[in-house]
Design a protein around this nucleic acid. Structure first.
Length: 1083
RNA sequence: GGGCCAGUAGCUCAGUUGGUUAGAGCGUCCGCCUGAUAAGCGGGAGGUCAGAGGUUCAAAUCCUCUUUGGCCCA
């Protein structure tokens, strides 16, 4: 019992933790934890679903540790924390992976292969690395319910998503439109931004300046033309309008008898010097509303956006003065252009279709011409008609299809949208109620994103995803319907097969008659699937198959109290969760009106966002601050690091290294340091306790723990500090700032518990002469250690649990104990009184260093003065013994008041006086520092004095100044401004003799250790040496023998015994020792 | 181009509402202790708080600009 743990941990942390993992597994820790909290209030956590078709890296360890730590902490605060795992399984990355596997590429290939087999391959591929994820999570101690995860491709999940989509449709927030995408005309497909990035190439393009003659120009604008610039002449036939920036100033210039409108600083690029002059200036807004003659007249084309206007001037901030003329030609082949056309009601007609070829003849370009081949002919035509002002060539980087190398176009593809912009106000409002850590992300990045919200382009022309549950009539495409459940689909289509799978292609085959009156058409599904971000954003509902099942559970488990993901999720999961939940709970009022749905009660869900607080973590870089990437080969494989250091050290180091939201470096050395300095110290402290509890047979169960009030000041101090630490941890964890909690814990464990409390109290643990003090020491340390491991448990779950089990001597895990109460016993005056003691110790060591007298050499007297001692709530003098031991002095003299030998000076209390004195503060500070000691003394005694500074009187009281001690006359002294000490450095005969006695003990102890004796082994001791040494040994023989456990006393002999160890002591003194272990019966 | 964040000791980072001499760990130099012993502790040295300007009696902290780096979006 009370086994030592330190060496086992330091030697092989991995094996150490594996043992604890087995324990947890055998008793199913997560289940046990939830059972222990069966009736507790919930703390709701949502797991952001990872994609399991990639290996987890060390940065996932960061995210998972943050989640786990907060969840464990809340569990220990008495909450019931369900932890349902989840998997994000749909989407393009899966498809690309499978294309690679099957050795095919592109949509035509996939359709040739067959959507059915392709999706089957996707389904099999998504869990390629599931094992890796589960094992890693389990190994780092991330408690997660992997037995009942939510999986986005499961039928139930898909059905919930359909239901949510149908609610958008019912509210008229689902609509058909166009989305401008990077598009390959040859493959007939849109590309993701990732794919676009794969295919940039430098090409040569024409650069044309074209005139747009105004139809209705008046005054200076009469007969004037707008000038636009483009490198894509093929888009000019599809010109919809011209866009200016309302706040720019434009000029009208005359050139060769014509008038042209553009930005002043662009004129020189167009016309030669001296051939133009400025006629007039006007703001962009004055141009808005004019119309101009179209560039090309032709029949045909594909109208993709109906509108009342064509060829008009509009304004938008997206127009810059960097490229072009400050007037932008709008064509449907641009996302901004499309947005503006939408807003302004401008008709959009495509001259170039989805195969990137002309749909109709335009000028000298024939139907079917590939877009890039039309540039020359179009330019020529414009030139002939006098509309081309300038033509040159430019080389620039242009995207190409990474599969077939064809130049891409930006193309408005048919798409389905969610009208999120219609409830932007609600989303912004609800965002203000979310607690963001750090807050800037919520106000800044996320807030900004919501302010600029545009409708959600929901559909994807792909295969492996949740099919968009929209069925359209073949007679009239305005007859469409969004399905809300499998049951509804079954009823409409005459029943679903048992093997029904809501994925493509199965779902594509289902059709039913159009139910619009007097329509005899047949409804079939649109080909698209949906953005997989909608899947993950739907998880608060879909993870429980709401509203078809678990309505009560969702009502309790919505919204989340806490989520935590990386910064890159701001526009990802954080947004989709928010957008869907705000819509469902706040915008969709109809859903909740009746209080029931499908004939069963529907509990109202809390109105608002899906989460109340969110913790954002930054990127994890390598030790040199480089982004980890396969290319650089600097990816840290979590397994290796864990094997070396164990998970606790990694968890601790990841959480303590700076604010969570900043990008941080993963540094192996930092992990070692944490392991040694923090975890090592905690274990050593426990081992110390265990060692003496064993030898002295102390057991918490068979003794009565003494009243705290009756314990020594130092014991009450450490208990109070433990409470202080608990209160800081609770505050920091609640604020989602684990790094702050860990700083408190590190300081408490290393400085306060180990380096001060244990170090100053060691003797009490083996001194059974004072059994009361010993029992109290054991009780205090036991209690403090138990509190400490409960505080470290959320961060270092393994180590903490193993120490806890030892201390408790039972099987109960630390992980469902209560976190130490922040409202426990606290004695703040006592804590304050310790501060001068720590300062005095430090000063004392500094003086000893200066005068070169080692601590082992006792000194006579230490004089201590504490400025403002009387204002401390408790007297530091209660700790006099600690100071005597720490600095090895015979006595401590506490100085009252400000005696003559102490030089003092006053410093102004700036925060107090600064407000009163204002500009005169500097002068006032000067006169305060000149006040004499009598005045200061009087002020401290409670009287006041008046200082006149620059003609103004200031009444100064004791509170307006603080006293600073400078030095002590006649002694080796030093001060830190608050505490001043003087050290008597005279060495008397007795002190020297005692110093030597300590040297002797020191050498004997070293010899004991080197000889491999146990700490409680008794020995027989012979020694001798130089005259002074022998004299000291004689004088202190009793003390020495008790210190080194030589019950038979020591034998001082002038003749050196054979086999004795020789030593050279300071001041050229000589010593020899012979120590032998006494037989066991003596021990 | 826009937004957000960061720049403090050789390295990694703290630094509360502006207020006394800007702190800690690692590293380095010097030393100590050891009945926690394959540990531990202390003391020094080391900083123009990225740069410039401003507000203020007082700025690492507030404001403006510049600069470097990161992330997100165009």
């Amino acid at each position: 019992m009370l086994e030592p743990l330190s060496r086992k941990f330091q030697k092989d942390p991995n094996a150490f933790e594996q043992g604890i993992l087995e324990e947890w597994e055998s008793r199913n820790l997560l289940k046990a934890t939830l059972e222990a909290r069966a009736n507790a209030a919930p703390f709701v956590f949502y797991e952001g679903p990872p994609t399991a078709n990639g290996r987890p890296g060390i940065h996932h360890v960061l995210g998972r540790t943050l989640k786990d730590t907060i969840c464990r902490f809340q569990t220990m605060r008495g909450k019931r924390v369900l932890r349902k795992a989840g998997w994000d399984t749909h989407g393009l990355p899966v498809e690309l992976e499978v294309e690679k596997q099957l050795g095919i590429s592109g949509k035509p290939d996939i359709e040739k292969h067959g959507i059915g087999p392709f999706n089957e391959a996707c389904r099999n591929s998504v869990f390629t690395y599931k094992q890796d994820w589960e094992q890693l999570s389990q190994r780092i101690g991330f408690l997660l319910d992997y037995e009942n995860p939510y999986v986005t491709f499961h039928s139930n999940y898909v059905e919930s998503v359909w239901f949510l989509l149908s609610r958008f449709a019912v509210n008229n927030l689902l609509y058909r439109g166009h989305k401008v995408l990077p598009w390959c005309g040859r493959c007939g497909t849109g590309l993701s931004s990732h794919e676009v990035g794969l295919g940039y190439k430098d090409i040569n393009d024409p650069s044309v300046w074209v005139s747009l003659p105004l139809i209705d120009g008046k005054g200076e604008l009469e007969g004037a033309s707008l000038v636009v610039w483009t490198t894509t002449p093929w888009t000019l036939p599809s010109n919809m309008g011209a866009c200016v920036n309302a706040s720019f100033e434009y000029v009208v210039v005359e050139h060769n008898g014509g008038r042209f409108v553009l930005l002043e600083n662009k004129v020189a690029e167009l016309f030669a010097e001296g051939e133009w002059e400025i006629v007039s200036r006007m703001m962009g807004e004055e141009l808005v509303g004019h119309s101009y003659h179209p560039l090309f007249e032709y029949e045909g084309g594909d109208t993709v956006h109906e509108g009342e206007h064509r060829q008009v001037v509009v304004a938008d901030d997206y127009v810059t003065d960097v490229d072009g003329t400050g007037i932008v030609h709008l064509a449907p082949y641009g996302a901004d252009d499309f947005r503006i056309a939408n807003r302004e009601g401008i008709q959009a007609v495509l001259a170039v279709g989805d195969e990137a070829r002309f749909l109709c003849p335009v000028a000298q370009v024939s139907e079917g011409t590939f877009f890039s081949d039309a540039n020359k002919a179009l330019s020529r035509d414009l030139k002939e008609r006098g509309r081309l002002l300038k033509l040159s060539q430019c080389t620039h980087s242009y995207p190409h299809c990474w599969r077939c190398d064809t130049p891409l176009i930006y193309f408005p593809a048919p798409a389905w949208f969610l009208k999120t912009s219609s409830y932007k106000k609600e989303m912004i409002e609800e965002n203000k109620r979310i607690r963001w850590a750090p807050s800037e992300i919520g106000e800044g990045r996320f807030g900004e994103w919501l302010e600029n919200n545009i409708d959600w382009a929901l559909s994807r022309d792909r295969y492996w995803g949740t099919p968009l549950p929209v069925w359209v009539c073949d007679c009239n495409e305005d007859h469409w319907h969004c399905i809300s459940s499998f049951e509804e689909l079954g009823e409409l289509s005459g029943g679903l097969e048992d093997s029904f799978d809501p994925h493509r292609p199965c779902v594509d085959e289902i059709s039913f008659p159009c139910n619009h009156s007097e329509c005899s058409g047949s409804m079939s599904r649109v080909p698209q699937v949906i953005d997989c971000w909608f899947d993950s954003g739907a998880m608060p509902f879909a993870q429980y198959h709401w509203p078809f099942d678990n309505r009560e559970t969702v009502a309790e488990q919505f919204p989340a109290d806490f989520i935590a993901e990386g910064l890159d999720q701001t526009r990802g999961w954080f947004y989709t969760l928010h957008a869907i939940s705000v819509f469902l709970t706040k915008v969709d009022q109809d859903l909740w009106k009746s209080g029931e749905l499908l004939g069963k009660p529907l509990p109202r869900l809390a109105e608002g966002s899906a989460y109340r607080s969110v913790m954002v973590n930054g990127l994890l870089l390598d030790k040199d601050g480089q982004k980890m990437s396969k290319r650089l080969g600097n990816i840290v494989v979590p397994g290796n690091a864990i094997e070396k250091h164990g998970a606790d050290a990694i968890r601790w180091s990841l959480l303590s290294g700076g604010a969570a939201h900043l990008s941080r470096r993963f540094d192996d050395k930092a992990v070692s340091e944490v392991r040694r300095r923090v975890l090592g110290t905690l274990l050593a402290s426990y081992d110390f306790f265990a060692l003496y509890a064993r030898t002295e047979a102390w057991n918490p169960t068979d003794c009565e723990l003494p009243e705290v009030s009756s314990r020594p000041a130092l014991d009450r101090w450490i208990l109070s500090r433990a409470t202080a630490c608990a209160s800081q941890c609770v505050e920091a964890f609640d604020a989602l700032e684990p790094a702050r909690a860990l700083r408190s814990l590190e300081g408490f464990i290393v400085d306060e518990l180990s380096n001060w409390y244990i170090r100053r109290n060691r003797r009490r643990f083996w001194n059974s002469d004072d059994s009361e003090s010993q029992a109290t020491a054991f009780a205090t340390l036991w209690e403090v250690l138990r509190a400490t491991v409960r505080m470290t448990a959320p961060v270092a779950p393994f180590l903490s649990d193993s120490i806890w089990t030892q201390l408790s001597q039972n099987d109960e895990s630390v992980h469902y104990q209560e976190f130490p109460s922040p409202d426990g016993i606290r004695d703040i005056p006592l804590e304050g009184a310790m501060d001068p003691i720590l300062r005095a110790s430090s000063l004392g060591r500094s003086v000893r260093e200066r005068v070169q007298i080692r601590v082992r050499q006792p000194l006579g007297k230490l004089i201590v003065h504490v400025a403002g001692e009387s204002s401390l709530g408790a007297s530091p003098r209660a700790y006099t013994d600690s100071l005597i031991q720490e600095l090895n002095v015979k006595e401590v003299e506490w100085v009252d008041g400000t005696p003559d030998f102490l030089q003092v000076r006053a410093k102004p209390n700036y925060p107090r006086l600064g407000k009163r004195a204002g500009k005169k503060m500097k002068a006032l500070a000067a006169s305060i520092s000149e006040m004499n000691r009598e005045t200061l003394f009087a002020l401290q005694g409670g009287s006041t004095t008046t200082l006149v500074v620059e003609g103004v009187e200031f009444e100064i009281s004791g509170e307006d100044i603080s006293m600073e001690t400078l030095e002590v006359e006649g002694l080796e002294a030093t001060t830190d401004g608050v505490v001043t000490i003087g050290l008597e450095t005279t060495l008397t005969e007795e002190l020297i003799s005692e110093g030597l006695a300590r040297e002797i003990v020191n050498r004997v102890q070293a010899l004991r250790r080197d000889s491999g004796f146990d700490v409680s082994d008794r020995i027989q001791l012979q020694l001798g040496g130089s005259v002074q040494v022998e004299k000291a040994a004689q004088e202190h023989r009793d003390w020495i023998s008790s210190e080194v456990l030589a019950p038979e006393g020591i034998k001082v002999a002038s003749e050196k015994t054979q086999g004795a160890q020789e030593y050279e002591l300071p001041e050229n003194e000589a010593l020899w020792i012979l120590a032998t272990r006494l037989p066991a019966e003596v021990n």
